[in-house]
Nucleic acid binder design. Structure first.
Length: 544
RNA sequence: GCCAGGGUAGCUCAGCGGUAGAGCAGGGGACUCAUAAGCCCUUGGUCGGGAGUUCGAUUCUCCCCUCUGGCACCA
């Protein structure tokens, strides 16, 4: 059976347009998903939007529209951006979707119905009254630690009122020891629960200090924009049991009412969740695994959390008040979607914060894409056209070139096999651009070394020239395959220029790691004339 | 205050016990197939500071400074 891989992103809150951070996360997940597909896996890739909650309700009211109309409009913008950036998800999560709402209600019902035989009470959910100061803006009760020295609350909380309110709570503490054991076991097994693993200790600390339970409801009288609790129509679900459930509600074949997970659904577990560092603790690192555990998911079915950092702009935190929020659409307008994808993936070290500057984006584009990759394609194809009328000879004396590309004198076959194996083993948080650039650099070096223009002048060296051109053609075909997760569009153009309309063993997929081996282009194969893939960006052009 | 992660060439980072590395940026050179790209050479670092262990420390231990996250406390 085909191996499976599933990956999700956080779902974005539809209270404002998408920014660079949203974009990075989706591109990161897309690149990982494409890499897995390249390896022949069947991929489930879920992303989407979180549309409920008080802020949406309030903004919609303020703008004189309905919450649904308001979120629909923003949702279109998110989807349009992902389409433009070639984010190739297989399922779309929107929390106002009927199936999702049904699933959330079933999940809650199941936990509500899971009774302790001794008391007859639900083992996981209970109702309780809580009194205290409540921030309307932040939708939460405040504790003493938020109170200032003078007994008042800071302006960041907005209007604060004293309130007595009855709500439903989800028990967290009974799962603490289990979660600690899971975190430790996963680290010991070499596949940490949180990647990169330097965040594991952070999460562990948070779990050790876990206290109190999770409030999962809001009275309808003050928040109507949400999913009604199945066991109490006076309440709607508060964010986590709505938003987090999307990971399973939109997955194929999940049925919360079933005793055990269905095999059709289990086949997609465990999942990778790509999230920002701000929502690791407590949402994804604490609430979510505990929710899954209460629902009967096994330890083996628990996800891995891939936690990425944030983007700053010119060294400063992105914020609306600073006015430095980067609009991904504007960047794509100016520089193109693919260069933007490339920049995001090569500039950021997964897990850490990264800085965006326009200079770096342009520098990265010119150096890597125009000068290195693009120019390599252009010069290679041009030489094949000029020296051999566009045709390759596969049967030339390749043995003469063995060892040129490999320090220890290995064969071309071995070289390609090793490269493909190494590329295949890249972890999801790995660097997908540098290994490809390394191949391009090697090719550029070898061109200088072999001096094909001299070989061309010497009829006695005709065989060597043929062999060398074939070697270059195969190398750039390999590059096209390897770079395809990051630059799917450009990689397609690369194969077009190589006249690889359909890849031999690729089946329905155009990019297939199985094709990343030596000697695929047939004898007499005709390459197309080159067109520059990434025209060099210069300052004059920016003024156009 | 506690926990974790950083502090290595101008920039982004790798190395993590045995004479300091890569890419980019800067300087010089030879070449011409190419998007004035590429290639070669090169400038540049007492590897945050101090002490210790060791034949030997960027690499291990301790202390300190500093940045980033998380947690807590005071109020």
């Amino acid at each position: 059976m085909t191996e499976r891989f599933s990956i999700t992103t956080a779902i974005d809150y539809t209270n404002g347009p998408p920014h660079l951070g949203h974009t990075y996360e989706k591109v990161l997940a897309d690149v990982i998903a494409r890499h897995q597909r390249l390896r022949g896996k069947e991929v489930f890739f879920l992303t989407g939007v979180d549309q409920h909650g008080q802020k949406v309700q309030q903004t919609a009211e303020r703008e004189g529209t309905t919450p649904q109309a308001y979120v629909d409009e923003l949702t279109v913008r998110f989807r349009a951006l992902w389409a433009r950036l070639d984010v190739d998800y297989t399922a779309w999560a929107a929390t106002t979707d009927t199936d999702h709402q049904t699933c959330v209600r079933k999940v809650l019902q199941r936990l509500w119905d899971d009774r302790d035989p001794a008391t007859g009470q639900s083992r996981w959910i209970y109702k309780a009254i809580r009194a205290g100061h409540y921030s309307i803006r932040q939708e939460q009760f405040l504790t003493e630690k938020e109170m200032g020295p003078d007994g008042t609350f800071g302006p960041e909380w907005g209007q604060v009122e004293y309130r007595e309110e009855e709500n439903y709570y989800f028990r967290l503490e009974p799962h603490r020891e289990w979660l600690l054991a899971l975190i430790d076991a996963r680290s010991q097994a070499g596949r940490p629960f949180v990647v990169p693993d330097f965040r594991v200790a952070e999460l562990r600390n948070a779990v050790e200090k876990l206290a109190g339970d999770l409030c999962i409801s809001r009275p309808k009288v003050r928040l109507s924009w949400g999913i009604e609790l199945p066991f109490d129509p006076d309440y709607v679900t508060y964010v986590w049991f709505d938003a987090l459930v999307n990971y399973v509600s939109f997955a194929p074949g999940y049925d919360p009412a079933a005793e055990a997970n269905q095999t059709s659904f289990e086949a997609w577990l465990p999942m990778w969740h790509v999230i920002g560092k701000d929502i690791l603790i407590p949402a994804h690192g604490v609430y979510w695994p505990i929710m899954l555990h209460a629902l009967g998911f096994t330890d083996e079915q628990m996800p891995t959390l891939l936690v990425h950092g944030w983007w700053t702009v010119d060294g400063e935190k992105m914020s609306k008040s600073l006015g430095n929020v980067v609009d991904p659409d504007a960047l794509a307008d100016r520089f193109g979607a693919e260069p933007l994808r490339y920049f995001l993936m090569s500039e950021a070290t997964t897990g850490r914060d990264a800085d965006f500057t326009e200079e770096r984006l342009i520098g990265c584009y010119n150096t890597d894409l125009a000068n290195n990759l693009g120019n390599l394609f252009n010069r290679t194809l041009t030489m094949v056209q000029k020296y051999r009328g566009g045709r390759l000879r596969r049967d030339a004396a390749t043995a003469e070139l063995d060892g040129l590309f490999v320090p220890d004198g290995g064969s071309a076959e071995q070289y390609f096999t090793d490269l493909a194996a190494r590329f295949s083993e890249l972890p999801p948080e790995g660097n997908f651009t540098e290994p490809v650039l390394a191949i391009a650099r090697l090719c550029n070096q070898q061109i200088q070394e072999q001096q094909p223009w001299e070989l061309f002048k010497n009829p006695a060296k005709a065989d060597v020239l043929d062999a060398f051109l074939y070697y270059l053609a195969e190398s750039i075909r390999l590059i096209a395959i390897f770079i395809s997760p990051v630059l799917p569009g450009a990689a397609g153009q690369m194969l077009d220029q190589l006249n690889c309309g359909s890849v031999p063993d690729g089946g329905t997929e155009r990019f297939w790691l199985a094709d990343a081996r030596w000697g695929v282009l047939p004898h007499g194969h005709r390459l197309n004339a080159p067109t520059p893939l990434f025209p060099r960006w210069n300052a004059a052009k920016t003024k156009l």
